[in-house]
């Protein structure tokens, strides 16, 4: 009954239970954080805008992105993945989401930043609908915890327009 194996088993079970409980509590504590992030994005320049030979519109933009995401970080945060997506509707598609830029923030110290960049991923439409198109730029963030549940949210910035003619 009180053999070595029995005691080792009881100890191991207890240790694993406590560890699981601590992980669950750490993950739960993320719910107590109410973040208030802020962001602003400017389209500084339309570098070029053309129709590909296969008929899809493609545009290249220069963006100025600034954001303060420090309030997203808690003690259970491993990293925050952020990306800026262009979102718009066309007659063919009810939703188009195109990631233009992304980044990984590893610590709270780097969570207040600004960057000046052209789009990292190609901004290509499915079709030829981009001339004069109004679109939203949405900053999404995905919080990756050290353990437990992942969080995601976004900040929609609207009122951006593409030029009416190719250039």
């Amino acid at each position: 009954m009180h053999s070595f194996g029995y005691r080792a088993n009881a100890l191991l079970t207890f240790a694993v239970t406590i560890l699981a409980l601590m992980c669950a509590m750490a993950s739960f504590s993320d719910n107590l954080n109410h973040p208030s992030p802020s962001s602003s994005v400017q389209v500084l320049n339309v570098n070029w805008f053309q129709k590909q030979p296969n008929g899809n519109d493609e545009v290249s933009l220069t963006l100025n992105i600034s954001a303060d995401l420090q309030s997203l970080f808690t003690w259970n945060t491993k990293q925050v993945f952020i990306f800026l997506a262009a979102e718009y509707e066309t007659p063919k598609n009810s939703l188009n989401q195109i990631s233009l830029w992304d980044g990984i923030i590893a610590s709270k110290e780097h969570a207040k930043f600004w960057t000046h960049t052209s789009n990292k991923y190609r901004f290509i439409d499915q079709g030829s609908n981009l001339r004069g198109k109004e679109f939203n730029l949405t900053l999404h963030w995905h919080v990756m915890p050290k353990t437990g549940k992942m969080f995601a949210d976004k900040l929609v910035m609207s009122g951006y327009h593409l030029p009416k003619e190719y250039r």
Binding site: F81, T90, K92, N93, S94, L95, N96, S99, Y121, Q126
Partner: peptide, 16 residues
Amino acid sequence: HRVIKVHERQDTGEVY
């Protein structure tokens, strides 16, 4: 892997 682009059809609701 992570999704970076989504196109959702108006008529069928299919996603690409």
